[in-house]
Simulated assay, not measured.
Amino acid sequence: MINIKNQLLEVCYNYYPIDIDSIKDKKIYLDTNEYKRLISEINIHKVKNNEKFITELNSIAEKYSYELNDKTYFEWLDRCYTYELIRKVNDYFILVKLYKSILKPLYFIEQFKIVELDNNRVEYMDIELEEDIFFLEKLRFFCERKGFFEFDKKLKNFQVININFDDIEMGKFTFFNAFFNSQ
């Protein structure tokens, strides 16, 4: 695990300046080579055609009665492609989020049960439903066949204390933020 953390940190330090606060020292931060490298990578993916991946992913989603929505927002400086796959089950929805990093060949999957409490409120429950084990395994197999490795869930909230980005405070920036988005 230590070796994986070190590898991830090495990639982070390539795209995020060390010990320069993006909030307090914004002008200096925006002028760093690391930040410029990150923006360049994001801009490459803004225009990259990802249609084949989406078509294949949609084919898998349809087989399991999921609707696919592309929620990728590179204009918000996300560091990943984001796909939401959703289906209705009785009186709730199952939402599967697939994140595909642009900085390192990593993917991350989250699953939620969404229950409508009333007309204006929704409750999200982070779960893994047994009924979707085959679907989730199919997603993992698909991503790995495309050359991506699953991002370890235990590392999601690991804080990288000497870097930050956008409006995330120094010391609160996580591996998930670095490789995927600022959620």
Results as ranks from 00 to 15, higher is better:
158 F>S: 11
143 C>L: 11
44 I>G: 00
69 N>P: 00
157 N>G: 13
151 F>I: 15
74 F>S: 09
119 N>R: 12
57 L>E: 09
135 F>Q: 07
108 F>C: 05
125 M>V: 07
90 N>F: 11
74 F>Y: 08
129 L>M: 14
124 Y>R: 08
156 K>L: 08
46 K>S: 06
55 T>W: 03
105 P>S: 09
118 D>F: 03
78 D>K: 04
126 D>A: 12
67 E>M: 10
127 I>H: 08
73 Y>G: 03
87 R>Y: 03
120 N>G: 00
90 N>M: 11
104 K>M: 14
143 C>M: 12
90 N>R: 14
89 V>L: 04
54 I>S: 14
116 E>C: 00
99 Y>G: 03
122 V>M: 06
130 E>T: 11
61 A>W: 00
121 R>N: 15
56 E>V: 01
70 D>R: 06
69 N>R: 15
53 F>L: 12
65 S>N: 14
116 E>S: 06
95 L>I: 14
110 E>W: 01
104 K>L: 13
89 V>H: 00
105 P>T: 07
110 E>T: 15
115 V>N: 01
115 V>F: 09
157 N>M: 09
116 E>P: 03
150 E>N: 13
129 L>E: 15
47 V>Y: 15
68 L>M: 09
50 N>K: 10
66 Y>G: 10
71 K>T: 02
135 F>D: 06
144 E>V: 12
126 D>L: 14
142 F>W: 00
75 E>G: 06
103 L>T: 01
103 L>M: 12
123 E>C: 12
45 H>W: 13
159 Q>F: 04
46 K>V: 01
70 D>C: 03
59 S>R: 10
57 L>C: 05
85 L>N: 07
100 K>Y: 04
119 N>V: 13
67 E>N: 08
59 S>D: 10
81 Y>P: 02
83 Y>R: 10
47 V>R: 13
63 K>V: 06
140 R>H: 02
150 E>Y: 09
130 E>C: 13
145 R>N: 15
153 K>T: 08
103 L>E: 02
138 K>Q: 09
140 R>E: 11
110 E>P: 06
153 K>V: 09
105 P>L: 09
73 Y>I: 01
46 K>Y: 11
48 K>A: 08
62 E>H: 13
61 A>G: 09
128 E>S: 15
120 N>R: 04
67 E>P: 00
134 F>W: 02
54 I>G: 12
47 V>L: 07
103 L>Y: 04
121 R>I: 09
152 D>N: 13
57 L>Q: 06
44 I>A: 03
106 L>C: 02
117 L>V: 15
135 F>H: 05
115 V>C: 05
137 E>N: 15
63 K>H: 07
93 F>I: 13
104 K>P: 00
101 S>M: 11
102 I>E: 01
82 T>C: 09
113 K>P: 03
124 Y>D: 08
119 N>P: 06
48 K>L: 10
107 Y>T: 05
